[in-house]
Simulated scan of single mutants.
Amino acid sequence: MLGIIAATTAAALAAPVAGLLAHRAVRRSTHARLMRIDAPNGIDQQGFVRIGGIDQWISVRGEDRANPVLLELHGGPGAAHSPYGARTRAWERHFTLVRWDMRGAGLTFAHGGPAGQGGAPAFERLYADALEVVHHVRERLGVDRVVLLPSSFGTVLGLRLARSHPELFSAYVGTDQNVLEAGRDTSAYDATLARLRAAGKAKAAAKVEAMGCDPNRWTPAQRTAYDKLCAGSDPLTLDTLKKVVLGSMWLSPLYSPGKIAAYFKGQGFSEPVVTGTHGFDDWADGTRFEIPFFVFQGALDVITPAARARAYFDAVEAPVKGFALIEDASHFAALRRPDRFLELLLAHVRPVVAAGRAPAA
């Protein structure tokens, strides 16, 4: 996603600067007012916590501490969710929402820079950090379990956490669900090639074809190039990147222009994390989960196709499970349609969590 988002940013900044900044100031003030939590039993704590030996940004927000806790695991790697507070504000009426910018991402990267990330980025570090964050949140909020809400690359972490530590989670809720299959499934790759050819972009199609269909053989630079072509060749995904991703970042009270620049640098810094997942196979690792298991997927997702997510979900064994498509959404489905995503959380997840359904023996 790095290349396409960066290109979109450059185009936006080419607009008349004075008018753009004035509009931004008004909208950021509106978002800051929207984000206020005044409820007597509410919580609004945002700042840096020592996780894995470095300072990492964590936000804990909600209007009632008695509500279930949602812990997000963002995608990317490096695609932090800290810019999206205004879009998901309604979630905080029904859940305590915990956002964490992983090492190499968002405000964590902006705070420490490359030298402050504790060394080279690696999947194993993110996994250890995630486990530490879960324990921190449980202790901080006085809860035994949290709802795990991973998206996109975060689901690679999320599936492994849910399998290995069911005692920590009241439910798994995946979105933009990634299913790693050691390179066997080529549906997203094939569809990207077809879109490029249909659009007459022969050079781009040849570039993708030359890379081959196995992402485990790609270099980090090739993966970034593929992401750019995959997303940029789909109008709905491109529109989401412009309006939801870039729009949220530009108008977030947490993001100055310098921090926006750091966001993209963090994504570049985090690229090597993916190499640590080469060879992962979610089917071989197991489809049995001891906690309620949900997937809410964009019906038109071209990056992590809904059909692949559905096939994996159908094989899952869990105490309770549910699958739903989010219409008119590609990747970033929960953020493009936060209202619909909340409806699904309230209809399917919150009742199970509130009932205290324990993990299966």
Rank of each mutant, 00 (worst) to 15 (best):
K203F: 07
Q46D: 12
E181N: 10
G42V: 10
Q177E: 02
Y127P: 08
F280A: 02
L107F: 04
H94T: 13
R93D: 15
R223E: 12
R138I: 11
G42R: 12
N67Q: 15
L13H: 04
E181D: 14
G232E: 08
H278F: 11
D285V: 05
S330F: 00
V134E: 10
F48R: 02
E63W: 14
A315Y: 07
P359Y: 07
P235I: 12
A80N: 05
D234C: 14
R36E: 14
L149W: 01
L238T: 04
E343W: 04
A171W: 04
Y172V: 02
R33M: 09
A329Q: 10
P121F: 09
P77A: 01
Y84T: 03
F280K: 07
A171Y: 03
A66P: 07
Q56G: 15
A128C: 09
A198P: 02
G200K: 01
V26A: 10
A25R: 10
K265W: 04
I58F: 03
A329V: 09
R24I: 00
D227T: 06
R350F: 05
S330Q: 14
G279D: 08
L73W: 05
V173K: 08
L73I: 06
P351R: 13
L180Q: 09
A307W: 01
A18I: 11
D214W: 03
E132H: 03
F293H: 04
W100D: 08
A206Q: 14
T277D: 09
A333S: 12
L236I: 14
T9H: 10
V245L: 10
S164N: 13
M249T: 13
H23F: 00
A194E: 15
I5M: 14
K265V: 02
H278C: 11
P338H: 11
A221V: 15
A221M: 12
V208T: 13
A14Q: 01
G112F: 08
R33G: 05
D176Y: 03
A261P: 08
L325K: 11
S252N: 08
E132P: 01
P305V: 10
E327N: 15
G116V: 06
A299D: 14
T224D: 15
G85E: 04
T287P: 00
V143K: 08
